[in-house]
């Protein structure tokens, strides 16, 4: 090996080592944290499974379950550029019964001034078609995603709301359940209820010292009347079919911006 070759090898090695280490030594002031807080509300108050409510159609309701997937989170800077949270760490299951699940911490967000947040309510179609090895964490059908997956018609349930109401049929023990999913199908086209929501806000700073807490109010009272009237007396059990699209049109716009504060 000639001297110049030896030098090249040495140079390559040092560059490699430098790159390797620099990944860990990268000064942290180029990134920060953003916290998303999902507040499930009814008539502007925190949703409570113990309480009885009345919906816009005068139907008395009590809730027993509320779960939804939040995924593919994207943040938009003031200048219009966007940062997408890496796919593999961008799936979350929010459960009313699990307070910890309602707070999503996004780390490694590049510093800057951000003015909008975009997220999917549900699970994108690509992930819905991936192999079992790509279904970990919130998407693990054998653990966290319990009850949020259709086994007979492969696909995740995006939004699940259950409860009881005198308006629901007696033979159903007055139970109502809305299980909404549908990613568009794999080999044949099927229903697509994937919904994306963008919330804009006054620019907030993300840095290693400052990070916003973005409150997202999920107004469950308007689940029943936001766009389409959903009367329990008429539709008390929806799990697939055309009407599920009407429901997804409703719930996408009950995710609204609450407080945005800096920590």
């Amino acid at each position: 090996m000639s001297k110049s070759m030896k030098f090249q090898v040495l140079l390559c090695c040092s560059v490699f080592l430098f790159c390797g280490f620099s990944r860990y030594e990268k000064p942290k002031n180029t990134e920060g944290t953003v916290i998303l807080k999902f507040n499930n509300l009814f008539n502007k108050e925190a949703l409570d499974f113990e309480k009885a409510y009345t919906n816009a159609h005068g139907e008395k309701v009590k809730f027993t379950l509320l779960n939804y997937f939040i995924s593919n989170i994207k943040l938009t800077k003031e200048d219009g550029s966007t940062y997408a949270v890496p796919q593999d760490s961008s799936y979350f299951l929010v459960k009313q019964s699990d307070p910890a699940s309602k707070e999503i911490t996004l780390n490694h967000i590049p510093s800057g001034k951000y003015s909008a947040l975009t997220f999917t309510i549900g699970v994108d179609s690509l992930r819905n078609t991936m192999g079992i090895g790509s279904r970990t964490g919130a998407l693990d059908v054998g653990a966290t995603a319990k009850g949020m997956y259709w086994v007979w018609n492969s696909g995740y349930i995006f939004f699940k709301l259950e409860g009881t109401s005198p308006a629901a049929p007696e033979k159903q023990k007055n139970v109502f359940n809305y299980h909404i999913g549908g990613f568009g199908g794999y080999r044949s086209k099927t229903m697509n209820n994937i919904k994306t929501r963008t919330l804009a806000f006054k620019p907030v700073v993300v840095s290693n010292r400052k990070g916003p807490v973005i409150d997202i109010n999920v107004e469950i009272d308007h689940f029943f009347d936001q766009v389409n009237p959903i009367k329990i007396a008429e539709k008390s059990s929806v799990m697939w079919g055309e009407f599920s699209t009407k429901i997804s049109e409703n719930y996408v716009s009950i995710f609204n911006l609450g407080n945005v504060s800096s920590k």
Partner: peptide
């Protein structure tokens, strides 16, 4: 044909 992957 509701399931499209043997693993599922």
């Amino acid at each position: 044909g509701g399931v499209f992957n043997l693993d599922l």
